[in-house]
Simulated assay, not measured.
Amino acid sequence: MSSTTPSYFNCPSVGKFPDPVSCTIFHVCVNAIFGLVDVPYDCPSGTQYDSVNAECTIDPVQCPGEPTLVCKKAGIYKNPYHCGRYYRCTWRYISNRYEIKQFRCPDFTEYSEQSAKCIKSETCQQNNTDFKCVQAGKFPVQENCKEYFECSNGLNGLIEQRKSCDLYQLFDRHLGRCRNECLVKCPIDDDETEIEEGKVFIKELLEI
């Protein structure tokens, strides 16, 4: 991460803090001889700072000036301010607060709390950009719950691979790994997931 030099931030205490203006900058405040010193950082390209979880992420985040998302109880809810997003509320006993994590629906769909999945929409056209590795890890594809992107460190940077979960498994978007399909709540239209499952099944039969 490259350091930046904004002059408008004042450290409230030692710790890590979001920038009050930009989604892509965060501040690390440290003790020095003459008081607190602000060390600003830029998130890696393609990521934004998640102030709730104190990390840079490729997932959607709540930027400065945006309305605050509310958690009244644990669960998954539609983002009322962005049609193509939904968020999960998880109670964390250690920090004594709800953890909020946002996710994107595929293009031209929106999250339905009634059906608990992303459904086709004629009005929600968010036009998500193509996936690009910006950090190591496993990430969901937009179109289904069977496949995922795996980003790993290579000699010349990040290596991107599109992979499929094993038969009878789906990719858990919340945990970031493949699990037994009966344990995964897929937010994508069931028909599309069944099509992908069938493709993998046929492919494995041909390889026998």
Rank of each mutant, 00 (worst) to 15 (best):
T90N: 08
G84A: 04
C89D: 05
G176W: 06
C29I: 13
L36M: 09
Q114L: 11
K138R: 09
E55D: 10
T68A: 00
V52T: 07
Q169M: 15
E55S: 14
D42A: 14
E192P: 00
G75K: 03
I159A: 11
R179M: 10
K203M: 13
C178I: 04
P40S: 14
K16V: 04
F108Q: 08
C63R: 10
L170N: 13
E194V: 06
T5A: 06
E194K: 08
I58Y: 01
A54Q: 13
F103P: 03
D59C: 08
D107K: 04
N79L: 09
K203Q: 08
V39Q: 08
D59H: 14
L167M: 10
L205T: 04
I25A: 00
F9L: 15
L69F: 13
S2T: 05
K78T: 07
N79S: 14
K203H: 13
T5V: 12
V14Y: 05
F171G: 01
Q161E: 14
T129Q: 15
S121Y: 01
L36T: 08
L170W: 06
Y81W: 05
Q125N: 14
K72P: 01
S13I: 02
L206Q: 06
E113D: 13
K117I: 01
L158G: 02
M1G: 12
N180G: 06
C118D: 05
D19I: 10
S115N: 06
K16H: 03
V14T: 14
L170Q: 00
I202S: 12
Q161S: 10
G46T: 03
E122Q: 07
F103S: 12
D190Q: 02
T24D: 12
Q125Y: 04
C56W: 00
V200A: 10
F17A: 03
C182R: 05
K203A: 15
E160F: 00
E110N: 09
K16W: 00
I159V: 15
R173H: 03
K185V: 14
Y93K: 07
C133Y: 08
C23N: 07
D19Y: 09
D172R: 01
P80A: 14
S112H: 02
S22Y: 13
V134R: 11
V39I: 11
Y86K: 05
K132G: 11
K203N: 11
F131A: 15
Q125S: 15
S3M: 10
G15H: 13
F131S: 07
S22E: 14
P187K: 03
E110H: 12
S164W: 03
S121H: 10
E181K: 06
Q62G: 05
C165D: 05
P187S: 03
I195H: 04
C118W: 04
F34N: 15
L170R: 02
N79Q: 12
R92H: 06
E181L: 09
C186E: 00
